[in-house]
């Protein structure tokens, strides 16, 4: 265990004193309009934005990544996959930058086996971005720009990725490589508390 989960409710402006926020995957509001476009206006997101602006750690996974982009906490946008189809597949990721709050338990160039599952995962940004993870050569499942799988903001405290590290934490159901992301966040929080 790397931490205790505290569920937050979309309609309540209350972060319940958590040490980090994870905006999880799913299909918020059915993704009927544009992935993440409505969830970005959920009352709890106002607190998440404040929390991020104060330097709090925020991780967005899949739909959570889309929500964070829509909320302006992360640069760029996620476009429909090049195949225009949903894709569920185990992919290899490469760690581009291990010197961040979200990847400090990884080594540079380390490969992580983690599943993706999305329809709208093709990352695009007109400006240079700080990418922490990319799909290993030949493994890009969605046509993402520069094979980008996950990016963080300039301050380094908000991170979004399309792959699902929470589906790679148990050898029974796949790999355990996703744990590196959560262990990184745990270590960062522990350091901050000590500091």
């Amino acid at each position: 265990m790397v931490g205790d989960a505290v569920p937050l409710w979309h309609a309540e402006r209350d972060l319940k004193g958590v040490e980090a926020v994870i905006v999880p995957g799913g299909f918020s509001y059915g993704d009927y309009l544009r992935a993440g476009a409505i969830a970005r206006f959920a009352p709890v997101m106002e607190d998440v934005i404040e929390f991020a602006q104060e330097g709090g750690l925020v991780l967005g996974i899949c739909n959570g990544f889309q929500v964070l982009c829509e909320a302006g906490l992360l640069p760029g946008a996620l476009l429909p996959n090049a195949s225009l189809r949903f894709v569920c597949r185990q992919v290899e990721l490469e760690v581009l930058d291990p010197d961040t709050s979200f990847t400090r338990a990884c080594a540079r160039g380390q490969r992580l086996s983690v599943p993706v599952k999305h329809t709208t995962g093709r990352y695009y940004s007109p400006d240079p971005v700080h990418a922490l993870l990319r799909y290993a050569p030949g493994q890009n499942p969605n046509g993402s720009q520069d094979d980008i799988a996950g990016v963080c903001n300039e301050q380094g405290n908000v991170f979004g990725l399309m792959p699902h590290p929470e589906h790679a934490v148990d050898p029974l159901t796949g790999s355990t490589d996703g744990l590196r992301i959560f262990e990184s966040i745990r270590a960062e929080i522990d350091d901050r508390v000590v500091a």
């Binding site: 189809r85 949903f86 894709v87 569920c88 597949r89 599943p115 599952k117 699902h164 929470e166 589906h167 148990d170 029974l172 159901t173 796949g174």
Partner: peptide, 14 residues
Amino acid sequence: VFEQYDSIVQSRTV
């Protein structure tokens, strides 16, 4: 076909 389905959500799929 099956790659178009999420086969792992809910984290029970062994």
